[in-house]
Design a protein around this nucleic acid. Sequence first.
DNA 1: GGCAACGATAAGAAAAACCTATGATGAATA
DNA 2: TATTCATCATAGGTTTTTCTTATCGTTGCC
Lengths: 307, 307
Amino acid sequence: MMNITLKQLRYFEALTRHGHFGRAADTCAISQPALSVQIKELEETLGIVLFERSARHVRLTGFGQEFAERARVILRSVDELGDLARVAQDRMVGRLRIGVIPTVAPYLLPTLIQHLNAKHEGLDVHIRETLTQRLITELLDGRLDTAIVALPVSEPGLTETALFEEKFVLVRQAEDADAPVPSPEGMREMKLLLLEEGHCFRDQALSFCSLRPVLPRDGLDGSSLSTLVQMVGAGIGVTIIPEMAVPVETRSAPVSLARFPGEEPGRTIGMVWRKTSPLAPHLQNIAEVVRDAAEALADRHKDILPA
Amino acid sequence: MMNITLKQLRYFEALTRHGHFGRAADTCAISQPALSVQIKELEETLGIVLFERSARHVRLTGFGQEFAERARVILRSVDELGDLARVAQDRMVGRLRIGVIPTVAPYLLPTLIQHLNAKHEGLDVHIRETLTQRLITELLDGRLDTAIVALPVSEPGLTETALFEEKFVLVRQAEDADAPVPSPEGMREMKLLLLEEGHCFRDQALSFCSLRPVLPRDGLDGSSLSTLVQMVGAGIGVTIIPEMAVPVETRSAPVSLARFPGEEPGRTIGMVWRKTSPLAPHLQNIAEVVRDAAEALADRHKDILPA
DNA sequence: GGCAACGATAAGAAAAACCTATGATGAATA
DNA sequence: TATTCATCATAGGTTTTTCTTATCGTTGCC
């Protein structure tokens, strides 16, 4: 009788995530038949069927679910075994999987990647850009090593460290450049454009205006900051964006910028990782590199919108 | 760059246990070069040396030790994955690794194996006979599924279940058959033959006589009950043996047997396994089979030394 | 009924693992 | 000091495993 192999568990795990042989095979970088065969072999070794194949769906059996949970733990432990080794040879080399939220990624990453390559030659940086919630899931699953998100996250299994503060600024039509900046309460009277549900920045903006979460209003929710700014330029309303996005997003639309007077709204961007990660000591160093990159970026653009 | 495989971890683990490429290779049922190559490949994958090879010894490096701990956990989890599957298809089949202490094994096993084969066809029973302490270690390491030992064991990670009680009986020269049976205190005046250090039965016998553990007295400690009885037959002293050993051990030596009057000394034999073992539900059944076997055995010999 | 999507199967090719034979090294021994 | 022995590493060729491409069979859908 055959033996269970890690390869089989990796393929199995991919299949549980995709529920689709073809796509799972793709992410494993093998052909669909290869995956089919390995899954079958795994099932034969175990003497139990793991997946229920219907013509339309591939679903885990009851036993498969229990199996999947344990398999995931094992795979993560094995990955951590590799991480452990990387830490032990005390320079940081090899793969580093970073997740970044969409309202930070496009602005920070170019600089960050440059800095990372400079400081840690031989580091193979993988980037994943998606919403906070998904990043946290993948982090806990061991599919990411760390994530850059807005703090606080308050997830028991994770350590967080602050990277930098960023203020929010008001974006209006170019003509309104000299109009007085509304107070937070005043914002409620205006047509405020927001990101779609799920973006943390949506909630942060709403909270500044002391607005309760509202249902999506068709056509008024943008899928990116870029979209929002274009809509403002077209005279549809006003919006708020984090200052880091300013240099990139306001270049190509007829909009004016303004800081809020008094207590400026803002958020803390930070890095999180699993408390148990053997990479922990190195992630502190990586966090330092991110801070440097953010600072360099802010410095470079400090004259676009002076404090 | 290569990937870590379970095979490599298994080989690695064997090598940590043996500290010797040749012997480790043997237990893995492969040639020594095959093992050498896999270990080297593992080290290259990790980018770290795991073993320090001197001409005489193979020892783990500092990192190797940490690595080994985690590897063992992983291997056990994988084995349990297999066990889980076996339990799920609700008949018990496949490998079952049972450890048995030396003062029980030779008498119980023949009957037990017979019963196991009858009740669980297709069960591949592996037996390991050694001292309690070692059995417990191997059990916690996941190298055994269960062990039959004297209770209590009182190990936090283990569950215990009683199997049967057995009394101890006095073995004297054949001529002394009609002499009065000494009291426990009386035993102290006699030349009491004991098993070597490490056997739990040695301690049980000493405790009955209210003797403090004594240092080995050259030439008077036997390595098996068989040896002790032969020594008694040769007139060197007296001894105590568990009643289960009576039919086998007293057949070939000129000795007489006697029960102790009043509160008879004895011990509880039981089965233990890891609390987390997925085999747990089945092990309860196995325990039942062991009880049956012990009862059948006692029944068969009940006239040799009536209660 | 025919098409499209999907997983299973088959045959041959590529990659990985293994075995036998042999080399290299260092400790024990003569 | 030379020799032997034990032990791990390396090399070449073979076997085993895994993978790819091609193809089939099924099922849902228009």
